[in-house]
Amino acid sequence: MAVLVTGGAGYIGTHTVVQLIEQGEKVIVLDNLCNSSRDVFSRIEKICGVLPTFIEGDIRNRECLDKIFSASSIDSVIHFAGLKAVGESSQIPLDYYQNNVCGTLILCEAMAAAGVKKLIFSSSATVYGEDAPVPYEENMPRGKTSNPYGASKAMVEQVLTDLCASDPEWSVALLRYFNPIGAHPTGLIGEDPKGIPNNLMPFISQVAVGKRKELSIFGDDYPTEDGTCERDYLHVMDLADGHVSALSSLDENGVHIYNLGTGNGLSVLEMVKTFMRITGVDVPYTFADRREGDLPAFWADASKAEKELGWRATRTLDDMMEDTWRWQSNNPNGYEG
């Protein structure tokens, strides 16, 4: 039996594919390569000694999905495929709803037709909404999201919850991520955003490697200790391990919700200063106006995942910085060289 990983050529997907293979799982990757590179697969093979099956295709293509399920013995699906840039989602909301929501509907229809009813969904802490108190706990209701990206994740969560209520044979894990950073310790795979990075760490590392002039920190007047936003940053390898651990939750039917984070909030300035301390590389920065939709501070209560899955984030902030820099310095232009 195999695990189908949609969006498995992306940042989180590639690291999860590596961990799945290391655990002895047979992996099939489906990705349309709209925000990823085919080069990741040769690098995965270097790390694991195994080349995962790759199918270039889109989750919105039902014919493609039906062929995959009919040709392979698939036991479960880990679903990463979707658009993920918060700012961009406000500019092209229909694309986000089409890819993230409609794509998931078509995937679930194909899964149901094939009798595959185990799914891990790549969700987000954004579903807690603008007004949720910190730390975020899984028993909190979904709140008012601040952008179409977050709204699309909340919509999919509701779809999957309703699906499980309608058909008790389904088992779904909703994994609510916080802020993954870092890279595989080999430096062979890492975060390679197209164009200007939307996330903090690839922007920091691209400035450090000379690809960008300086870092813009959006807002220095938030009600936090140093005035910059605070987030819960976790190593992408810990996040990948969380998906492997969550496969065990699919043995029990119904909806299972888990936060994947460290439980600690760190400010943007702390991240910049830690990166410079660990790498010895200067990162010039300036302060800019607040970015619309950014919340002052949030972090996870991740105790449920530890209690039920035996998972917790174990890699340190220093590890995150070292691995980020190893990846970026070895691959100044990402997978292009």
Rank of each mutant, 00 (worst) to 15 (best):
I68R: 01
G7P: 03
I55H: 06
L174D: 13
M111R: 06
E138P: 07
K117A: 04
A173T: 15
I189K: 06
G10A: 03
V172Y: 13
V255H: 11
L33K: 01
Y258T: 12
N331P: 04
G210L: 02
W299S: 02
W327Q: 02
V18C: 06
L234T: 14
K194N: 08
V156M: 10
I74R: 01
S152G: 06
F69W: 10
K67S: 12
L188A: 10
G261K: 12
I189F: 00
M320Y: 05
S166H: 13
L188I: 12
L234W: 07
K84C: 15
A2M: 08
A81G: 14
M201W: 13
I196L: 11
A165C: 14
D319E: 10
L65F: 06
D66H: 09
I55M: 00
T14N: 03
V86W: 07
P185L: 02
A132E: 00
L247K: 14
T16Y: 02
M271R: 11
A183V: 02
T186D: 12
G210M: 09
R43W: 00
V207N: 06
N61S: 13
K67R: 12
A173K: 08
P93T: 14
S152L: 09
E25M: 00
V272L: 04
I47S: 05
N199G: 11
K194L: 07
E22T: 09
A305Q: 01
I204N: 09
G87T: 15
V40N: 01
N330T: 08
E308F: 06
K67P: 02
E322R: 13
P135H: 04
F275P: 04
L20H: 00
H79D: 14
S89H: 12
D131H: 15
D318I: 15
W325R: 04
R231D: 07
G8S: 05
G187D: 06
S76G: 08
S216Y: 05
S70I: 00
A297V: 10
F80Y: 15
I55Y: 00
I44Q: 05
V29N: 00
V268P: 09
C102L: 15
N198M: 06
G219K: 04
G310F: 04
T279M: 08
F178S: 12
N100T: 14
H235L: 04
Q328E: 11
V172H: 14
T314F: 07
L20F: 04
R277P: 02
D232Q: 09
E63M: 07
S205Y: 15
D251Q: 14
V255I: 15
G10V: 03
S249R: 12
Y222A: 15
